[in-house]
Write a protein that binds this DNA or RNA. Structure first.
Ligand SMILES: NC(=O)c1ccc[n+]([C@@H]2O[C@H](COP(=O)([O-])OP(=O)(O)OC[C@H]3O[C@@H](n4cnc5c(N)ncnc54)[C@H](O)[C@@H]3O)[C@@H](O)[C@H]2O)c1
Ligand SMILES: NC(=O)c1ccc[n+]([C@@H]2O[C@H](COP(=O)([O-])OP(=O)(O)OC[C@H]3O[C@@H](n4cnc5c(N)ncnc54)[C@H](O)[C@@H]3O)[C@@H](O)[C@H]2O)c1
Lengths: 229, 229
DNA sequence: TTGGCGCTGTGAAACGCATAACAGCGTTCT
DNA sequence: AGAACGCTGTTATGCGTTTCACAGCGCCAA
């Protein structure tokens, strides 16, 4: 069977927005938050682009998706632009997130997301180990994985992170989808196979480290390509 | 100042290989390892492609970079293909990796990489907290960050992972580059600015979760587009 | 006031990548 | 035997994204 690989997009209103644009908008907004926090009022495209490590042209093109225009003389007003990107990105209501697998990585993730994003909070943890369920973890209740369906429905969770061993990941993912989860972030080093209407993102740290190690061996000066034709 | 954004490539012999191809080759090899472990002898492109979640055409195209041809009747011999990809990817000698920041994430990473990759091992940890240095962590010595330069030279480390708070990440990265690191994997949620001959990869879990949450809100049936022609 | 400057927004071209299409060929079944 | 099948390796096509280039326009300096 051939895999149909349509680029993931989300139609919003009339326009369709690329996945890459969404990621960069999220990044821009985070940088804008920091700028606002540090008291910066206005910012030019080349400044913001430098902080995000993109070209100014791409930044401006990305901002075309947001309903806000900057001034040629002052640039963009930091807080206004941040709000406009937020209006584009944020859900109408806060989204609840579940975390499955309270192991080494799972606990680190808890610590990381603790009080970080107000409208994107971990509200339920799941595990299969009796010693780890029916407790509070960083102020969040943990349940046995068999209760997933009930808890998900009850709390209206439709986003989940998977941090269980690779051998259990596919089974856990199936359970979650069955429980109504529409979108997954998977840390286990297995490619999940799921219905096409479920969005899946893989963070494969092992592969990424290998990639980084591979590119550590590239020639020092990879930029110059002329010399003797 | 405008950022020149040349696609990262590595010239190997004559050919230049895309970054995306490298990532997929790493993924293929891991799957081949699992297949070999489970006793599979031969595999067809469509089977391997399904496990890697790519199309068979793309898989075959990627394999063009590797010096191995499969048989139209039996497919690819698992162990041979694995070795050929390894010959393409692996360094001539084992690579030593350093980990900076022995916090929640750092310790989880230690547990994850423990004994996982024989020729890609964490051989040194660094931190700034006196309580965390000059100890053994999962059989690996930890040093104060000020010793980075000495230890790096001594152990020939040229790859490092950064798992320190965002505020310290840029400073740590500069220190590492100064100590001779050529390639970085950064987990802190800041875009690092480094010389162009240093390879940097960002794993931005916060951004990724926001992305996943965003795409949880897409229309259920984004695939069907035909109906009345 | 007016000319020049620098930034924004956006159409158009260029590029890289994935997808489709095809030639070669060993196997198998009639 | 020979024809049809299925898989591989490779070339060609199409698409999406990035980059280039420029029009528009407020501000500032002269
Ligand atoms: N630790 C890391 O830094 C790291 C890095 C990259 C990837 N990963 C991946 O993340 C996953 C978890 O890593 P970890 O280090 O936390 O492992 P871990 O063994 O510490 O934790 C796994 C947890 O999952 C639970 N679990 C097992 N089967 C389950 C099931 N069917 N349902 C629910 N829970 C189940 C276990 O009880 C355990 O608490 C692994 O797939 C690993 O490859 C971890
Ligand atoms: N914990 C997670 O799951 C997670 C997820 C995504 C991103 N991150 C990012 O990873 C980084 C670390 O996260 P964490 O949860 O482990 O934080 P943490 O506070 O638990 O650990 C940070 C460690 O870095 C050390 N450190 C601080 N400054 C240093 C310096 N200048 N040099 C060397 N070491 C220094 C601290 O002593 C501490 O041990 C943060 O930037 C965080 O945003 C963490």
């Amino acid at each position: 069977m051939t895999i149909k690989r349509t680029p993931k997009r989300l139609k919003l209103g009339r326009k369709s927005v690329s996945e890459l644009v969404v990621v960069r908008l999220i990044l821009y907004r985070r940088i804008l938050r920091d700028l606002a926090f540090s008291g910066t009022r206005y910012v030019f495209s080349h400044q913001l682009a430098a902080l995000a490590d993109v070209t100014p042209e791409q930044l401006r093109r990305d901002l075309m998706n947001v309903r806000y225009e900057g001034s040629p003389t002052r640039g963009y007003e930091v807080v206004v632009l941040e709000e406009c990107i937020g209006a584009f990105l944020d859900p109408p209501t806060a989204q609840a997130v579940a975390l499955v697998g309270v192991g080494n990585l799972g606990r680190a993730l808890f610590a990381y997301f603790l009080g970080r994003r107000p409208l994107l909070q971990i509200v339920a943890a799941f595990d299969i180990d009796p010693a780890k369920v029916d407790r509070m973890i960083n102020g969040c209740p943990s349940y046995h994985i068999s209760e997933a369906r009930t808890v998900m429905r009850e709390k209206g969770i439709n986003v989940a992170m998977i941090a269980v061993p690779a051998a259990a990941a596919q089974s856990v993912a199936d359970t979650l989808v069955d429980a109504g989860v529409r979108s997954l972030l998977n840390f286990a080093d297995v490619r999940l196979r799921l219905p096409p209407d479920v969005y899946v993102e893989h963070i494969d740290i092992g592969v990424t480290l290998e990639k980084v190690a591979f590119f550590a061996r590239r020639p020092a000066a990879a930029e110059k390509d002329m010399g003797s034709p």
